[in-house]
């Protein structure tokens, strides 16, 4: 994901970045202006210990931030330089300035990917909880294989969203799909409208 934060290019990587993501970062680094910020969270953190060109000299100008919770789940040692610890709430506050005065959903999280494992299930939910902790107007749009987050062991963590009204949970279902355990059913047209109307759309 690429997000504008003021005039600063901000990159939020939750999976191993590919050539397209790295090229976008390199392009941002080549521009005059504030240093681009990169936030690595969830499975992207697996990649830090691999020998890669992530911190090649040409990328030294980036502000490398790592979700400290994701790091601690995988490592007991301190975060190596040039990476620095950061929190999800602070990152979301940075990339999503408060726009509660604006009509339409403020922040829509799009969940269309099935969890790879229990850790991925939690690390998909955590950005949503972080936004909710900031009292943001949060809508979660679950569709396709993303509905697997709402079923099976570990899915009970998602119940918090409804039980404490932390976020509106919309689940895209076709007429012949099994009914999900959680959330309000919506059709594809309503889902498209939510995406269009969102002040900020984050794909998880």
């Amino acid at each position: 994901m690429i997000a504008a934060s003021g005039s600063v290019a901000a990159f939020w990587w939750r999976l191993r970045p590919g050539a397209i993501e790295l090229a976008a970062l390199d392009a941002a680094l080549a521009c005059d202006g504030p240093r681009p910020a990169v936030f690595l969270q969830g499975r992207a953190v697996d990649w830090l210990s691999e020998p890669t060109g992530l911190t090649a000299p040409r990328r030294a100008g980036a502000d490398w931030q790592v979700c400290i919770g994701s790091w601690r789940r995988r490592n007991s040692e301190p975060l190596p330089a040039p990476f620095r610890p950061a929190t999800l709430a602070r990152w979301i506050d940075r990339i999503c300035p408060d726009r509660s005065d604006r009509p339409g959903p403020e922040l829509v999280f799009d969940v269309g990917r099935a969890p790879v494992d229990g850790r991925d299930r939690i690390e998909t939910l955590e950005p949503i909880l972080a936004a909710a902790s900031l009292d943001r107007d949060v809508t979660v749009l679950v569709h396709g294989q993303g509905r697997d987050h709402l079923a099976g062991p570990g899915s009970e963590a998602w119940d918090q969203l409804a039980d404490f009204e932390l976020a509106a949970l919309a689940v895209v279902c076709a007429a012949d799909d099994p009914r999900p355990r959680l959330g309000n059913l919506i059709g594809p047209e309503r889902a498209a409208r939510l995406r269009d109307e969102a002040f900020k759309l984050v794909t998880l």
């Binding site: 909710a132 009970e156 963590a157 119940d159 918090q160 404490f164 932390l166």
Partner: peptide, 14 residues
């Protein structure tokens, strides 16, 4: 016990 994780602060306050 219910959700597998601790609550958010805003949940506790409410």
């Amino acid at each position: 016990a219910r959700y597998g994780m601790p609550p958010l602060m805003r949940v506790v306050i409410r």
